[in-house]
Amino acid sequence: MTVNLDWENLGFDYMELPYRYDAHWKDGAWDEGGLVQGGSLTLNISSPALHYGQSAFEGLKAYRTKSGAIQLFRPDQNAARLNRSASQLLMPAVPTDQFLAAVKQVVAANAEYVPPYGTGATLYLRPLLIGVGENIGVAPAKEYLFTVFAMPVGAYYKGGMVPTKFMVAETYDRAAHFGTGQSKVGGNYAASLQAGKYAHEHGFGDAIYLDPIEHRYIEEVGSANFFAITKDGRKFVTPKSPSILQSITRRSLMDLATSVCGLAAEETRIPIDGLNDLAEAGACGTAAVITPIQSITYRDHVHQFGDGGVGPITQKLYDTLVGIQNGDVEGPAGWVVTVEA
């Protein structure tokens, strides 16, 4: 059974569901954790998450298949990435088995909110790891909270798989090389708010960041990774940099570009003045899936990709990835995990 919602017109907005999962770390160990009700946390006012940004999170989705089953897409990769982020911020790792159990429990407990197959909506899950407790000095917390909550969502960018215009955030940096840019931590997103606001106010889907040293090479879109197809149709390219998030969607697309499209997949530096060498481009991530990039505005120049529509390789990658996530296409071993609800 599912609740009665307008599934096909959901935005990407918070909705409080009946259950979430909480676990606490203290004295060197995690407790068993379990489901709790409500959407509010009570924290000590001196918690390091509030003052010093000791906060990391993940994003993944649960999908309803045509048969009515519920499945997750590569949740083990989210567990691994959360722990890489935790290590960067001196937080304790969440055991992979506990992470996966927490996600499955939240999905099963809120199964009536997993959108029906074919609506384009999904159940978005947000695992969150934060430093809590009494700690006013600049130092790691002595206690930690791991929580997982969920909500049904529609497309992150309005219209879904619709070509979108982006602009280069020339006067903003998202993250420094060798800082926390490669981790999914709160401070990176706070740093993207100004450029994102400016982009939206000027009619763009989001801002594209250049590298923080030379301001010459493409790094990330504000809320997603960047990829492109070279004009010769032979390569799937995506930025190589120490300050960008290692997207699970991007890594999956690199694998599919090779196995399904017969392309070479390469992480490389992509100069902003080399856009003429690219035939297609897109933004990719768990929330966005794939958003085709119609054009990039850099200084006074607007570079349009092709005829401004969805490129054929981008479309094939999208159809294959979403097909795997929705249970219509068989994916590589281990990519799909079923949830018993």
Rank of each mutant, 00 (worst) to 15 (best):
P312R: 08
Y14V: 08
L253N: 11
K142H: 12
V337N: 05
L278W: 05
P163C: 00
P212E: 07
S55C: 08
A287C: 06
E220D: 15
A281I: 08
E58M: 05
K316C: 06
K165E: 07
I248C: 03
A111Y: 07
I213G: 02
D173L: 02
Q77S: 03
N326D: 15
G11P: 06
E58D: 12
K240T: 02
V3E: 11
T2F: 07
V337E: 14
A191H: 15
A257L: 07
L145D: 02
T164P: 00
T147Q: 14
R251W: 03
A56T: 14
S243A: 15
L193P: 04
L253V: 04
L193F: 15
D277H: 08
Y113N: 01
L193I: 11
G181D: 01
R126Q: 11
Q88W: 03
L43E: 10
K231E: 11
A86M: 06
I229R: 05
M161N: 12
E201M: 08
G133P: 06
P312M: 07
F149W: 14
A111D: 09
G39N: 15
R126V: 01
N110R: 03
V3W: 02
D307S: 07
F149M: 12
I208L: 15
L321W: 15
F178G: 01
E143N: 05
A287N: 13
K316M: 07
I45E: 12
